[in-house]
Design a protein around this nucleic acid. Structure first.
Lengths: 66, 66
DNA sequence: CCATAATGTAAAGTTTTCTTTACTTTTAGT
DNA sequence: ACTAAAAGTAAAGAAAACTTTACATTATGG
């Protein structure tokens, strides 16, 4: 599974720490999700999407491994 | 967080067991997700959405508790 | 170049998801 | 009503997400 959180953050000009704060998770959690180190819950994915005025499906997508 | 997996299953006329098999999880996992007993990973949510030719955001949504 | 913000990483511990097995209850067809 | 399929539930254990603390590395502006 891949994601474009980094790109969305750049578009909206916010840091990992700021995104973390907006959705009430630790900065390390955002970092790990962004780097694909672990898969977030659907709840977090929805919250992240909302911050970016986007959708889960635009931000996260299946890749060949999945 | 709420979901309309039950409705989508009805539309597509498949059982919990069949949905479980399609995305390689146990039937109990589908049951628990459907009943809101736990929140699936984004990977599972994407796979469920794909089975229904739908999107994560159409199937799962935030409620007032979130 | 220097300072500082931002990001990356790691380890220990907690919480939650998910599996497996097994049993009960509900639903639906005949 | 009887049967069988479907759905609900529960408990123990495994696996993964997430937190906290702490420190290292990289990027950026002045």
């Amino acid at each position: 599974m891949k994601n474009n959180i980094r790109v969305e953050r750049a578009k909206h000009n916010i840091t990992q720490a700021e995104l973390a704060e907006k959705i009430n998770v630790s900065r390390q959690t955002i970092n790990a999700i962004e780097l694909g180190k672990f898969i977030p819950s659907t709840l977090l994915a929805l919250k992240i999407a909302r911050v970016f005025n986007s959708t889960v499906d635009e931000i996260f997508s299946l890749d060949n491994d999945d």
